[in-house]
Design a protein around this nucleic acid. Sequence first.
DNA 1: GCTCATTTGTTACAGGGCGTTACAAAAAGC
DNA 2: GCTTTTTGTAACGCCCTGTAACAAATGAGC
Lengths: 242, 242
Amino acid sequence: MSTTSPHILVVDDDREIRDLVARHLKKHGFRVDVASGGVEMKEAVLRSRLDLIILDRVMPGEDGLTLCRNLRASSNIPVILLTLLGSDTDRIVGLEVGADDYLPKPFNPEELVARIRAVLRRAQALPTNKSAKIERVLSFAGWTLDCRARRLTSPDGVVVTLTDGEFELLRALAERPGVILSRDELLDLTSGREPGLFDRSVDMQIMRLRRRLAAHNDANDIIKTIRQQGYIFAADVEEAEH
Amino acid sequence: MSTTSPHILVVDDDREIRDLVARHLKKHGFRVDVASGGVEMKEAVLRSRLDLIILDRVMPGEDGLTLCRNLRASSNIPVILLTLLGSDTDRIVGLEVGADDYLPKPFNPEELVARIRAVLRRAQALPTNKSAKIERVLSFAGWTLDCRARRLTSPDGVVVTLTDGEFELLRALAERPGVILSRDELLDLTSGREPGLFDRSVDMQIMRLRRRLAAHNDANDIIKTIRQQGYIFAADVEEAEH
DNA sequence: GCTCATTTGTTACAGGGCGTTACAAAAAGC
DNA sequence: GCTTTTTGTAACGCCCTGTAACAAATGAGC
């Protein structure tokens, strides 16, 4: 995502505005798709790997607001709402529904570009889709974690078998290097379960995962404990798409 | 930190607006500090763990724009710019300088709240803590503190194991060389806890940290005590991105 | 200088978090 | 069904960390 130019979808029923915006964004080096709302759009979101969506607030088919809310249920892709309605409450509702920004028409195309950049700046570190997780290969300290094959390879090239739980845990951590993850968060990320009062299952899995890593190599422990807080993946990770 | 309410700093020379905004934000459950720009603000940013800053675009002392740009150099804390100047190019410049949003005065306080929420929604999903800068390596007097690996290396190359508390404390200090940090501030920075009346835990950690540094080297003590005030990191620090 | 009050450094200790082992329950393979 | 693997619970002990108590240092006042 950060390597190539951002991919933006413009959804507006007004063909004139839609194309004007699209042309302007292309001039600024974005990759642009257009759609006119409804099913067509949902498809586009699911299929391609979009970086941002520009939505018209008012559309004959499905409302921009509703669309935005629905999107938020399954994805946290950045959304900018456009609209002719410029009242305060309109803007507030738009933002509360999950949009990242709200721009009243008529707007200066340059301002739209600036706001897109501002939103992307924030959003870029995020994993885009909640639902469709991208299968990738994560490399750290000589290790290789193939998320599609669910296979871990040690620095000396040996394939290490992991149980499902161990794999999910390692992935959850390795996908978020430098982030302190609480036990509850890890539990949710790996198995989707709720905390439970005296739950130390995460500790156990961490222990087993560490043991497995240590058995094959691993001088410096990659998974560190932050007392009272949780665990952290303390190595640099390189991602490669499959 | 995600447990407590977001902490927001409002910087505006117009006391009236500043207080109005502050009151409104408090009503919505935010923790609010105010400042009137310049040194006062920088101190506040350096010291406490802020989640977001609201900056007036135009201020007699240092310009809001310049402030924002300077902030961006060392931190990725969310910034929202306010201004009387509402022209397109003003907004564009504001956003390009690194602000997350740009709101022309006069504005509806509710809209400000909505925009704050939208920005925080993005920023809080980001890895690590909000105000935290990029992960980096701090060097001082021969020592090396790797904040990603959470590891300290002594001048003679020995890796010194620190407890979590010691590490957090050392980082809090080393990130702010030459700044006097009170015990309360250090407590907040290291563990996010609130003071407590007869709390001497910081003293304890300082003592243990000093002892650990002294054990490995350290002729001149790097962490100095300022009586009645707190502690100060008395060495030059070089930062290197990882 | 001395004395006293206040602040800070140091030691001792207790509570609790966490790594670890052992074991039981649950799931998967056959 | 049985066996093997995986995963959660219980228990034990080490280590981290905060509290308390005391010693040392600092500063004020004389």
